[in-house]
């Protein structure tokens, strides 16, 4: 009683549907490999912003004076550094201020060893899973008798490294 020819249209409809759905599945599964492209953009923006902030903190406001960054690093003034850095990088042209968080290290050379000094500890928003960017800036410290931080009294070049993330 049942004739094979009677189900032919149904079978072909199913076949067409399967073909299309499979294609979509393949397309979605392959493009998802390429989509990480756009996660680079917030990183790029954050890195540029952080570099700008460090460069501007290292620019003296008047000719012949020391930059704010050099003064903070030389005096190991983490509170001053943090408040200035955050006020620069959270400022926006309009609307509420941004919400960026940071920590900082200073790398220096002591004899043959490269050592790190924790300049500013991360705050409690740091869990280790944030996609943080690292920005750095060289600072040259003049020789200063009696300095005990970093490599002591001698004139030295140290590297300030800032880790910046959006909470």
């Amino acid at each position: 009683m049942v004739n094979d020819a009677g189900q032919l249209y149904t079978m072909e409809g199913v076949a067409a549907g399967v073909i299309m759905l499979l294609t979509v599945y393949i397309v979605i599964s392959t493009t998802s490999i390429y989509t990480p492209g756009d996660t680079h953009i917030p990183d790029m923006q954050l890195e540029q912003l952080g570099s700008d902030v460090l460069a501007m903190m290292d620019t003296p406001d008047t000719n012949g004076t020391k930059s704010a960054l050099e003064t903070f690093v030389n005096a190991d003034d983490d509170a001053g550094f943090e408040s200035m850095f955050l006020s620069y990088c959270n400022a926006k042209a309009s609307g509420a201020a941004d919400d960026l968080h940071m920590s900082a290290n200073v790398t220096y050379r002591d004899g043959n060893l490269i050592k790190e000094h924790q300049f500013l500890a991360p705050d409690n928003t740091w869990t280790g899973r944030e996609s943080a960017v690292r920005v750095t800036r060289w600072v040259q410290l003049d020789s200063q008798p009696g300095r005990t931080t970093y490599a002591g009294a001698r004139a030295q070049a140290v590297l300030v490294e800032v880790l910046l993330w959006r909470a």
């Binding site: 032919l8 549907g17 299309m20 397309v27 390429y34 492209g37 680079h40």
Partner: peptide, 30 residues
């Protein structure tokens, strides 16, 4: 009934090309 399968194939091909183009533009931004 073969034309239904043909339609499905055409739609699939169209999607494929669309996806290729989108992929390229995503790569530019990346």
């Amino acid at each position: 009934g073969q034309w239904i399968v043909l339609m499905g194939l055409l739609a699939a091909l169209g999607l494929f090309f669309l996806a290729l183009i989108i992929n390229q533009s995503a790569l530019v931004g990346q």
